[in-house]
Nucleic acid binder design. Structure first.
Lengths: 231, 231
DNA sequence: AAGCTTAACTTTGGATCCAATAACGACAAA
DNA sequence: TTTGTCGTTATTGGATCCAAAGTTAAGCTT
């Protein structure tokens, strides 16, 4: 059969998220290799990748085990993602917006509001939101010269989606977190919208209003540390 | 010789950051293997790890190349780190503080102010700051039940330190970014200090004052999206 | 019967071998 | 002289082999 290595990683990730290899369980190279019909070598490579992604962890000195995620872990991962996207959004805003970005954002905002009109996010809505999000993400990546932030987002992306299916999780809490993430993103887009129409003053006001993530980060140099401590 | 795999990763990372394998250059398994006196297998494993870390990237379909970082990439990575630490700090603050955390933070703040008293951060100061930071980081990790954020920070940690040495970078800009990061951290610690003394009102005031990262993130559900757009 | 020692088996890590393929170069034809 | 094609070479990916380390279990001793 001879699958390519990337597909081994994908297959293994899928197996784990499906619960075929339950969290906390030790995972043997040979077993996976036979299961996927490949040699041990690509499996070992896949293990390294999955370890870096955080889906696997070393079991003492001996092999790997599927990492256990608590509910807060998953929610944390979503929060990390939200914060990083906020950072990306801020940098994008600082750089200025090209025409492509504007049209893309307009579409995202439109779709977003439509999705938001529904009271409760169904599972398929989350998927759809994920697609919108993906577009938004790609736009940011392509506009931002630097790939570093995009990488950071990408690195943290697998976690919630891979593990949310495999663990018992309070769907209501998950939904709530998704909504938070979504609202945060909508706020970013709102700021962009203001920027698109050249209303920079209003954009800045919105940023302050939203305690825009990292907004004052660039101003930190002007702060007196002792003053900050004493104020 | 038979080095362990983790040491191969470390050695390779060191070689790259020393510029032995210049950015953008293609890097061959065999060459590295001979250079380190090991077989190709551990090198291949190391390549996967380094790829996930973002230090290597695929060169087309064929092999890897050392990733090139621009100055903004490195600064971006530091900014990512700052944002993530801000998030970690917020969660820690929400959870409440144990006695260990309090003493550790007190020490960090003391050392921090001392370091800050110097006008300009020397290279060795950056290292020292890095150590203080490490303590702070470990404390956060041990206190926070969830390892996810710590992972996220860890994943993005290699980049700036590994590449800052290997590329030509405006040291003044780097220093500026370090200072920003440091000030941001000091702000977090200031908030903690207030929390330590039970001055929750003042802590909250400081959070608002600093546009504390993610502070209002938990309040987003109360916002009317249309209202946010219209306000 | 309980605990310790030892031996067999399991499993990982490293090295080597083989196959596939992309890069490189040489040679020939236009 | 230039370009296209074919053949060689270099390099990666997968499979297999071997060694080392650990785990388990059985047997022996006290």
């Amino acid at each position: 059969m001879t699958k390519s290595n990337t597909s081994v990683v994908a297959s293994l990730r899928k197996l784990i998220s499906e619960g075929r290899y339950p969290p906390g369980e030790r995972i043997a190279e040979l077993h996976v290799a036979e299961h996927l019909g490949v040699s041990r070598t690509p499996v070992r490579l896949a293990f390294r990748t999955l370890e870096q992604e955080g889906l696997l962890q070393r079991a003492g000195k001996r092999g790997y085990q599927v990492r256990e995620f608590t509910e807060t872990d998953v929610l944390c991962a979503l929060e990390v993602r939200g914060v990083l996207e906020g950072l990306a959004a801020r940098r994008l805003a600082e750089q200025g917006l090209t025409e492509d970005v504007r049209t893309c954002l307009a579409k995202c905002i439109e779709d977003g509001h439509e999705l938001l009109a529904k009271g409760y996010l169904e599972r398929e809505d989350v998927t759809r939101w994920s697609e919108i999000n993906e577009t938004f993400h790609v736009t940011i990546v392509e506009s931002t010269g630097s790939l570093v932030i995009a990488d950071a987002i990408g690195r943290n992306n697998h976690l919630p989606f891979a593990s949310a299916d495999s663990i018992i999780i309070d769907t209501e809490a998950l939904d709530r977190e998704y909504r938070k993430l979504y609202f945060a993103q909508l706020q970013h887009q709102t700021v962009f919208q203001a920027l698109c129409h050249g209303e920079s003053a209003r954009a800045e006001m919105l940023m302050r209003e939203h305690a825009y993530i990292g907004m004052r980060y660039g101003e930190l140099l002007n702060l007196d540390p002792n003053g900050a401590s004493a104020t």
